[in-house]
């Protein structure tokens, strides 16, 4: 997909996930909105995947280490046809497969996540297997910035560099918020880029809500031989919904009927402008 279409798609995914969260009356709204552009770039352009053949051996792997942002993922997988879109209405309801975290009983999900700090180690294992078997697939792992406080992240960071996994891409949704407020107040992370660089990673810092930047950075990987890549995606939590942007309690706040209406009208306008942008080109 071209960038204008990707932008329109991201707006659509945001609307889908807001409707789903509103319907279920539960969900992690802020983080799903902040990483919607990253996931759209990965799933509609960058990753080699086949919704008709979800277990295709050479597929690129995606691990949602920040598993709580599963809403954006469910909406994308449904949109791509991994499972019927109607199933989205069962999100978080009694007996559902579409629970509040990734569930690998559902096609398209590799691993069950939700406990933060697991995803990167799993991704190191997958990337290592890809290397040892010369399978050629890449592994993309999306982490939260609050998640960086888990020591296991850094154990995996060390291993990724040690094994020279240039087929491994860590992405940090650097929205500078976690549940209790600013990441720098809760447990300071800066200078986060320097930390990753000192662990031996190729660090690329971008605007993680800007589709051109995302496409440029993600199209380039593996970008440096023998080094894993860390994309510091500087984002806005709640992105795309004006009144949710940068507001901590939108981490798991559920939109009211009026808020949903307002958000949908903002996003519809945005989506239409991107569709036009695509036609003008």
């Amino acid at each position: 997909m071209e960038t204008a279409a990707l932008k329109a798609k991201a707006a659509q995914i945001r609307m889908d996930l807001l409707r789903m969260i509103h319907g279920a009356k539960t969900g992690h709204t802020g983080g799903s909105l902040s990483n919607a552009d990253i996931l759209t770039a990965l799933y509609y352009r960058v990753m080699n995947i086949d919704p008709q053949n979800p277990k295709w051996e050479k597929r690129d792997r995606f691990i949602a280490s920040k598993g709580h942002s599963v809403e954006s993922l469910w909406c994308i997988l449904a949109d791509l046809g991994f499972f019927p879109k109607e199933e989205l209405t069962t999100f978080s309801q009694f007996g559902t497969r579409l629970i509040g975290h990734p569930n690998n009983k559902v096609a398209g999900i590799e691993m069950n996540t939700g406990a933060l700090g697991h995803g990167l180690a799993i991704s190191v294992g997958m990337a290592l297997a890809s290397k040892r078997d010369a399978s050629g697939y890449r592994v993309f792992c999306l982490m939260g910035d609050g998640e960086q406080a888990e020591g296991s992240v850094w154990e995996a960071a060390m291993a990724g560099a040690h094994y020279k996994l240039d087929n491994l891409v860590g992405i940090i949704d650097r929205n500078r918020l976690q549940i209790s407020g600013s990441t720098e107040d809760v447990m300071g992370l800066d200078p986060l880029e320097d930390k990753w660089a000192s662990f031996g990673w190729n660090v690329v810092s971008i605007d993680g809500n800007d589709m051109e930047s995302l496409v440029e950075a993600l199209d380039a990987v593996p970008s440096i031989a023998n080094k894993p890549t860390l994309i510091m995606a500087n984002t806005v939590k709640g992105k795309g919904v004006s009144f949710a942007e940068n507001v901590p309690h939108w981490h798991h706040h559920v939109p009211s009927d009026e808020q949903l209406e307002m958000a949908l009208s903002e996003l519809t306008a945005l989506m239409e402008s991107h569709i036009q942008e695509g036609q003008v080109r």
């Binding site: 598993g67 309801q93 975290h101 569930n103 069950n112 406990a115």
Partner: peptide, 8 residues
């Protein structure tokens, strides 16, 4: 934690 699943 209900529908957040076994991790929770």
């Amino acid at each position: 934690y209900g529908a957040l699943g076994m991790s929770h």
